[in-house]
């Protein structure tokens, strides 16, 4: 059995982009940024991006020691000139491959965050949902193994399953998902809604009350169907 193993791994690392080479200006702005969330930067490994200042004269040793005094741990540089790489090497820093695109000039401007596809998660509730409580599964299904009381509200971006009596309000597909459904063992709901199409208690046919039902959208119309028939 081997004592060790090397493995490639994709990690998220914080990158410090330098746009100025004046150590004083850097020191000043760094202090200001770090004072906003000092604990966030504690012991954080950091990569220094030199792309924008590769042609400038830069006191890298000073910047590295500055970062260390704030508790950051510089681990590598990237995008620097051969000379800057040499200095970094002498400071025990690694060198990462250059990025193709030059970084945006101003990091303060809010970046348009690319919509990362979030994998849906199911929320499971085992205790009764009481009057006045609200339980929401904003990113997937909601399963309630107990009852939902009058005056309680449960919401999900996808389906809702309720295994106890549903006496409160249930809203599925709250982000407009027309395919979302509600499954319930004992229908006594105050309100049912799928993707904004709703029915209040009064509109629920009497013969479907207290029944096992599913609720879905049929051509934009909220349909309640017995699960027994």
């Amino acid at each position: 059995m081997s004592a060790l193993e090397f493995k490639g791994n994709l990690l998220t690392l914080m990158v410090l982009h330098l746009f100025e080479s004046d150590t004083e200006i850097i020191a000043e702005q760094l202090a200001e940024k770090i004072s906003k969330a000092p604990s966030f930067f504690q012991h954080a490994p950091i990569v220094i991006d030199l792309q924008a200042v590769r042609k400038n004269k830069l006191d890298l040793a000073e910047i590295v020691s500055l970062l260390r005094t704030y508790g950051l741990i510089p681990v590598a540089v990237r995008g620097g000139s051969p000379l800057q790489d040499e200095i970094a090497f002498n400071l025990n820093l690694g060198r990462l491959a250059d990025v193709k695109k030059p970084p945006q000039k101003n990091l303060l401007e809010p970046k348009k965050s690319a919509k990362a596809p979030i994998s849906p998660t199911t929320k499971i509730i085992t205790k009764p949902v009481r009057s006045g409580q609200q339980v929401a599964a904003l990113n997937g299904d909601l399963i309630v193994l107990s009852g939902v009381s009058q005056g309680a509200e449960i919401l999900a971006s996808r389906h809702i399953h309720i295994y106890g009596p549903l006496r409160g309000r249930a809203l599925a597909g709250i982000n407009g998902d027309n395919e979302a459904r509600i499954f319930c063992q004992d229908l006594k709901a105050e309100l049912l809604s799928i993707a904004g199409h709703y029915k209040v208690n009064e509109d629920i046919p009497a013969d479907l009350m207290d029944q096992q039902v599913q609720i879905y959208l049929d051509e934009e119309s909220l349909t309640i169907q017995s699960l027994l028939g």
């Binding site: 009764p128 009481r130 009057s131 006045g132 409580q133 009381s149 009058q150 005056g151």
Partner: peptide, 13 residues
């Protein structure tokens, strides 16, 4: 009963 239900929820939170 409904008010008690609300209170039970608060006892738990």
């Amino acid at each position: 009963v409904r008010d008690s239900d609300r209170i039970i929820g608060m006892l738990a939170s």
